[in-house]
């Protein structure tokens, strides 16, 4: 596969490490959320046959974490964003 890195352009997926669903960005606050909430965060994922947002790490590249929108059936990639930007847009701060 080829991932169109937002900064570096097309790069072979071999350079990346896959993590999983981009919902991993939405980590609950450990001081307020309990075990149940964390359990959902960590283990309960949707498993769509179709469009899926997922985290890829450009380990053999610029070390950017990316949010890749990929169709799990066709492997078509329709969007690639810096995970940092996605995290900020979802309200993550410090």
């Amino acid at each position: 596969m080829i991932i169109h890195h937002p900064i570096l352009g097309p790069r072979d997926a071999q350079e990346f490490v896959y993590l999983g669903d981009a919902s991993l960005i939405d980590r609950p606050d450990g001081m307020t959320a309990g075990v149940e909430v964390f359990h959902d965060y960590l283990y309960n994922r949707t498993n769509p046959a179709g469009e899926h947002q997922e985290l890829w790490y450009h380990e053999q590249g610029d070390r950017s974490w990316l949010v890749v929108t990929r169709n799990t059936v066709t492997h078509e990639i329709t969007k690639v964003e810096l995970a940092r930007d996605v995290a900020r847009s979802r309200g993550r701060t410090k």
Binding site: L8, Q14, E15, E59, Q60, G61, D62
Partner: peptide
């Protein structure tokens, strides 16, 4: 300038 892999080496 780019990072790449050569024989498993970054």
């Amino acid at each position: 300038a780019t990072r790449t892999m050569m024989e498993h080496l970054g």
